[in-house]
Amino acid sequence: MSNIAPEITLCARNLTRRFGNITVIHNLSLELKRGEVLGLLGHNGAGKTTTLQMLTGCLLPDNAEKSECSIEICGIDLLRKPTLAKAHLGYLPETPPLYRELSVNDYLTFAARLRGMKSADVAGALTQTLQRCGLEAVGKKIIGTLSKGYQQRVGIAQAIIHSPAVIVLDEPTVGLDPAQIRGIRTLIRELGDTHSVILSTHLLGEVESVCDRVEIMQHGRLIYGDTSAHMRQHGNGKMSLEEVFLEITENHAAEELAL
């Protein structure tokens, strides 16, 4: 595996999205390889969530019909063959999409079947996912009665139960306590070995501890992209990651003003 170039599991080119007159995403292009964890970093309102929504087919780019715009998942065109491409996707939106009246086991079984898993394989996947996300104890409980941290974990569980090639997580550690955050980060790291993970966050510590690569977003553009190790060296090793991030975004804002 190591001597051949890892395959590209997600490739998005020239995504543009407008809401009314405001362009939220400008010509955004992204690539993700198998076995890579990509962190999408940015201030509030930078367009992270909108980008992830487009990558998962919940929102169409404005230029979806034009040939310059494309989203490919494992080589399948998401915009033209959505049902085929989405089988390789796992998505945790900002608010976990939970049916609160179902039990955890029922909900996860439904999520797995929904992504086209055979019912014979579901039982095994369910046990594995429950164990991975630390949900064994609450399998029979109704989701609505769980605490927010557990609900968030159920949200992550539904995104990975069918072991998709591309896992998209929108702020996965929101609402978790420090111990749980560490657990989830270890889990994401683990997932990153075999799958591709793209996660959005505004926590720099998260980027530092789990991401192989960072893309910084501002005003709907990717303004900086590098491996997280390189980013740390950006300030000659003297600055913390936080300072580097602030410097990059402020420089960019100043450049924009100058133009």
Binding site: G57, P93, T95, P96, P97
Partner: peptide, 14 residues
């Protein structure tokens, strides 16, 4: 309202 529609929209369903 409960944002569960996202689950259906991002699943391989027409």
């Amino acid at each position: 309202r409960n944002q569960t529609l996202t689950l259906l929209l991002s699943a391989p369903l027409s």
